[in-house]
């Protein structure tokens, strides 16, 4: 079943720059997809449209049954609650502890304290940071901070996890640790879309790979075929 479906999507910015044009794409539930391409190919615009940071100029984007283009500003939160997003710069609250950063995502929904505690501990265990719940972001390494960001993104149990260059600031070893965490999450049923520049990761992970160029899909590699064709 498709979780994401893009039909003839076009995005032109107010400056007149067309970032995406005539894009058609489907991503199935439970998939793990890499999106790659040179700088300016439209990768960032594509994922920004998926979590409705940007609106498509034309065409239709459906994520988890929600027509993203038709979503009013006041209702965007309904989409966001189904999606987790992870960024290159982690976007953690510097004055809050690891526990508070993750719990923050649940507290705004008014869950009981016990339930929040159980969920936060469970998710921090999954990303391997249970021992650092009282630390502040500045006391953690880059890889650890990214794992906190991932924990926060998945603590709500989203159907889709969008990762925008999550390993961009990390060394190769730490990057692979993050990839292992993401693979674990994917195995639990969460669909993952990851934008990256790191071809080594793409090759090692052996997942579906979509190559964008000038706002269009240049090539769509089925799972396991990218490494073979690009080695």
């Amino acid at each position: 079943m498709d979780l994401i479906k893009l039909t003839n999507v076009k995005k032109t910015y107010r400056t007149g720059v067309t970032a995406i044009q005539g894009l058609n794409l489907t991503i199935a539930k439970g998939d793990f997809v890499f999106i790659i391409g040179s700088t300016g190919c439209g990768k960032s615009t594509l994922i920004k449209m998926l979590y409705r940071e940007e609106k498509p100029t034309a065409g239709q984007i459906v994520v988890g049954g929600i027509d993203v283009g038709k979503l009013r500003n006041g209702k965007v939160y309904k989409l966001r609650r189904k999606i987790g997003v992870v960024f290159q710069d982690y976007k953690l609250l510097p004055k809050s502890t690891v526990y508070e950063n993750v719990a923050f995502a649940l507290e705004i929904f008014g869950l009981p304290k016990d339930e929040i505690h159980a969920k936060v501990i469970k998710v921090l265990e999954l990303v391997g940071l249970k021992s650092k719940i009282k630390n502040y972001p500045a006391q953690l390494s880059g890889g650890e901070q990214q794992r906190v960001a991932i924990a926060r993104a998945i603590v709500n149990g989203p159907k889709l996890l969008i990762c925008d260059e999550p390993t961009g600031n990390l060394d190769p070893e730490t990057s692979m640790e993050i990839m292992k965490v993401l693979e674990e999450i994917n195995k639990l049923g969460t669909t993952i879309i990851m934008v990256t520049h790191d071809i080594n990761i793409v090759k090692q992970m052996n997942k579906r790979v979509i190559v964008l160029d000038a706002g269009r899909v240049l090539k769509d590699y089925e799972k396991g075929t990218y490494k073979h064709e690009n080695s």
Partner: peptide
């Protein structure tokens, strides 16, 4: 702003 941006990202409504 960062805090507000994060709140929006994780699905906080305007009222939240």
């Amino acid at each position: 702003q960062r805090e507000i941006g994060i709140m929006r990202l994780i699905g906080a409504s305007n009222i939240n």
